[in-house]
């Protein structure tokens, strides 16, 4: 089996895991929870792009609509569903986002049917490392870089970090904590929409994001849930390793391989490769 082909293909797949993983990390940093509705939010955005594409015959207008819709949906989710659960412990948000996942998948099925439908790549998909793959990798790297800069070097990024980790202190010094959380969710869901646009081709259907989500969460856990760069590295790493497993060992072993990687990584580093060991709150 051709190693280069597998590596390049894995890199393109990894970009998708990295993108969705990144959106999970932004939310985790903002609200200390995993957003299980993220794949469905991304799905709905991709379907919106699909609808716009079909109506206009183009690609980029749908792309923009999807990203904007992602931001709006993210903000709405935070305001309507997540904020009321503020002091409720870790389980309630899990179940509420799961419920949202089911509702959004069902709505997508109602509107766009369960059948797979053709969804275009941004560019030509042909070649060992096609323009479409190159676009995926570059756009994910650029997005990750921009987010890193935002968190590290801008006032708003600083406020978001403060709101997430020391909400009481942040509020005391005048940070509007609620607004910062909404911004975090907006940002995350927009990145998630990007992941949806990258993951949907060639065919979109209501469960297309399910496996992507599993691998994205795996990537985030491997990389460290609080570490955006770690998660992006984890995503690319996972994409490449799974591509190699599929090529050399067999396609049916991919999910088992993901489990094995996770076990190995977490047994050495319980907070991911690049995660920070959080001091226990006593």
């Amino acid at each position: 089996m051709d190693l280069t082909t597998l590596l390049l293909s894995g890199l393109a797949l990894g970009a998708i895991y990295a993108a969705l993983g990144l959106s999970l990390v932004i939310i985790f940093r903002a609200t200390q929870m995993v957003n299980f509705a993220q794949p469905a939010l991304a799905l709905v955005c991709a379907y919106l792009a699909f609808a716009v594409n079909r109506a206009t015959g183009g690609y980029w207008l749908g792309f923009i609509v999807a990203i904007v819709a992602g931001g709006v949906l993210g903000a709405l989710t935070e305001r309507l569903l997540i904020r009321p659960l503020k002091d409720r412990g870790p389980l309630s948000p899990v179940i509420v986002t799961l419920g949202l996942l089911l509702v959004l998948q069902a709505v997508a099925g109602m509107i766009w049917t369960a059948e797979p439908q053709s969804f275009p790549y941004a560019f030509d998909f042909r070649g060992a490392f096609s323009p479409a793959s190159l676009f995926a990798v570059v756009v994910v790297l650029v997005t990750a870089g921009a987010i890193l800069l935002l968190f590290k070097f801008t006032t708003i990024g600083l406020r978001m970090r403060a709101a997430a980790f020391r909400p009481e202190v942040a509020a005391l010094v005048g940070v509007r904590v609620g607004r910062m959380l909404t911004i975090g969710w907006t940002l995350a869901a927009a990145v998630g929409a990007l992941a949806g646009l990258l993951a949907a081709p060639p065919f979109i259907h209501p469960t297309v994001m399910d496996t992507v989500f599993v691998y994205a969460l795996t990537a985030a856990v491997i990389g460290g849930l609080d570490n955006a760069i770690g998660t992006v590295i984890g995503g690319f790493l996972l994409g490449i390793v799974l591509s190699l497993v599929s090529g050399y060992l067999g396609a049916e072993l991919v999910t088992l391989a993901a489990l094995a990687i996770l076990v190995v990584v977490l047994s050495v580093r319980p907070d991911g490769l690049f995660g920070q060991r959080v001091a226990r709150r006593v």
Binding site: E252, T255, L256, L259, L262, L266, D271
Partner: peptide
């Protein structure tokens, strides 16, 4: 035993997805 919150959630989700694939092997 050493995993916390979402790390445990992620690992157990991978278990639920990965284990049934044994039947294919």
């Amino acid at each position: 035993a050493r995993l916390h919150g979402p790390y445990l959630a992620g690992a157990t989700l991978a278990l639920a997805v990965g284990l049934p694939a044994i039947t294919q092997r």
